[in-house]
Design a protein around this nucleic acid. Structure first.
Lengths: 169, 169, 169, 169
DNA sequence: AATGAATGAGCTTTCATTCAT
DNA sequence: GATGAATGAAAGCTCATTCAT
C-alpha cells in the first residue's frame, strides 16, 4: 500500500471514530469524508461499505483496549473502560444499524477484549480482591452496562464505588 | 376532541411504543401509521413531528412507571425497571436521533420518575436496607446503566445481585 | 386509488415509455420524473424500484399488442410488430440491466403475446399462406430479430419481403 | 512504442473484448484492468476514454471478420457472422452507451465489413445462389437482425433456413 | 377529522477519469 | 511507461413532512 493511501486510511479511521462516536447512527459517511479532507469516493475506496468502515473503527478500538489490558489491575481497567466507553457505544449502534453482523472480525475483536477482561478477573479472584461466586458473563455485562453511565465524572466515580463494593469478597 | 380522534390518538401511541421499541431509530413513522390502520397524515395531525410522537410515547411510559412506583419496595421496583427498560431505551434513542430535546415535557416526566425513585430510596435508607452514604444521582445512574444489560435473564439476575450487594449497608 | 394518483401514474408510465424507449439502459428515473412534472419520490411511490417501473411499461405495451392481434392477419401483424418494436427493445434492455427477472408478470405478458402470434400462425398455416414445416419458436425468433432492423422504412419493407418469401409455402 | 507497452495494449484489448462481450454496457473499465493484470491508469494511457477502448475492440473485431470473408461462400459467411454476433452486439451496445459516434474509425471498419459482405453477395448472385432482386442494404439489415437471434442453436438454425429460403432465387 | 398522494433533501454506492509517485 | 490513490458527478432509493380531497 502506498504511503499516502495509508495516511489517508488512518485519517479516515480517526475522523470516523470521532464522527460516529458523537453522532451515532445519525452520522453520515459524507461528513467523515468532509472532515477528513477527502472526497467521498476515497472513503468508499478504503472501506467498501459504511458497515465496513464502522467495523474497522471498532476493531481498532477493541485492539487498543486489549493492548491496554496487559498487566493492568482488574479495578483499574474496569474504571478505564467505563470512562472510555460512551463513544464506542455510539459507534456500535451505528454499526448495528448499518447491518453489521455478529460473525465478522469486529465480533472477533470484541471477544478478544472479553477474554482479556476474563483474565484480569481470574487474577483478581486469585488475589482475593474479587469475590469468587461471580463469573465473566455477569461481570462483563455489568461492565458494559456501567459503561453507558452518562453524567459527570463525580457520579461515575460513585457508581463505580457501589459496583466495586458489590464485587468485593 | 371527538371520540374517534381520541381513540385514534391512543391507538397510534400504543403502536408507536411497540414499533419504536423494537426498531429504535431505524423504525419509520409510516410503519406506525400502517400498523395503526390510519393514514400517515393522521399521525402527523395528532403529533406534528416525529419527535413529538416519540415524546408522547415516552411521557406515557414514564407516567405508567411512576404510578407503579407508588407503594413499591425499592429493590422490587429497581428490578422491575431493569426488566422493562430495553424497549424504552430504543424509544429514547429514536427520540434523541429525531432531535428530541432535554428541556421538553419528556424530560419533565423523566424527572418525576427520578423523584419517585428518590422517594423509594429514602424509605429504604430509613428502613436500613440501603446504605446511607449513597445518594440519588449515583443510584439513578446505576439504575439506568443496569437497564442496558442485554443477554439472558439469568445474567441479568446475577448482575442485579451484585448491584444489590453493592447497595446494601 | 385516488383520481389524481391514477392520472400521475398513467403520465409516469407514458413518459417512461418514451424516455426508456429512446435512451435504453442509460436513461435515468430522474429524467422520467422531471419530464412527467413530478418529484422523484412520486415515481418511486408508484413503482418501488426502477425494475418495477420498467416492468409496468413493458406489460402495458405487451397488452396493447395482444389486443391488436385479435382478428389480425399473420403477415399484417408481423409487419406491425416490426415497425413498433425498436423502442420496446430499448425498454427491455433497460429492464434486463435493472435486474428484471424472467419469472415476473412481464414475462407472463410476453408469453401472452407469443401465444397470440402462435394463434395467428396456426390460422395462416391452416389457410395455406405460411408453410407448414415451421413452428412458433423459429417464427417468433425471426420476428424478434427482424424487429431490430434499423434504417429507413424502405429497407425494412424489403427485409420483410425476403422474410415473407421464406415463410411462404 | 516500447514492446512491453505493445504487449499490454494487446492484452487489454483481448480482455476488454471478453469483458464487454459478456457484460455489455454494465461492465466496467476497472474490471478490464483487473483481469488484464494492469493498473487502471494503464488502460487510460492506451485508450483515453472508455469509448475509445470499445472502439478499438470493435475495429479489431470487424477487421478479423473482414479477413475471414476472403474467399468464403455467401451462406457460410452469413451463418458464421450470426453465430459470432452476440458478444459483438454487447460490445456495440456498450460503445453506444459510452457515447460512441457513427462517424469514427469504428464506423469505417463496419463499412469495410459491409462491403466484404457486398462482394460475397455479388458473387452469389452471379453464381445464381441468391436471387437478383435483392440488394446489399436489405441483406445486410437482415444479417444484423438475424444476428440478434437468441435462444438455442436449433432455433437459430431453423431461422437461418427460413432466411436462406427467402434469399434463394 | 381523516386520507393518501406528493415532495425534496439526504443517504449510500458506483464509475469514468486525473494526478502524484 | 506503469501504478494505484483520489475525485466528483450521478444513480437508485428512503423518509419526515405538507397539501388537496
Amino acid at each position: 500500500m502506498r504511503s499516502d493511501g495509508q495516511a489517508n486510511r488512518d485519517r479516515i479511521l480517526s475522523v470516523a471514530e470521532d464522527v460516529f462516536g458523537r453522532g451515532g447512527p445519525a452520522a453520515s459517511t459524507e461528513e467523515v469524508a468532509r472532515r477528513a479532507g477527502v472526497g467521498i469516493a476515497t472513503v468508499f475506496r478504503h472501506f467498501p461499505t459504511k458497515a465496513a468502515l464502522l467495523e474497522a473503527v471498532l476493531i481498532r478500538r477493541f485492539d487498543r483496549l486489549c493492548a491496554r489490558a496487559e498487566g493492568a489491575g482488574f479495578y483499574d481497567f474496569f474504571r478505564f473502560l467505563v470512562a472510555d466507553a460512551p463513544t464506542k457505544i455510539a459507534i456500535g449502534d451505528a454499526f448495528e444499524e448499518a447491518g453489521g453482523g455478529l460473525d465478522g472480525p469486529a465480533a472477533e475483536a470484541s471477544r478478544r477484549l472479553r477474554q482479556a477482561v476474563g483474565a484480569l478477573l481470574a487474577e483478581a479472584q486469585e488475589a482475593g480482591t474479587v469475590r469468587r461466586d461471580v463469573a465473566l458473563p455477569e461481570v462483563y455485562a455489568l461492565l458494559v452496562a456501567t459503561s453507558r453511565t452518562g453524567g459527570d465524572a463525580g457520579v461515575r466515580d460513585r457508581v463505580l464505588t457501589i459496583v466495586s463494593d458489590g464485587l468485593a469478597p
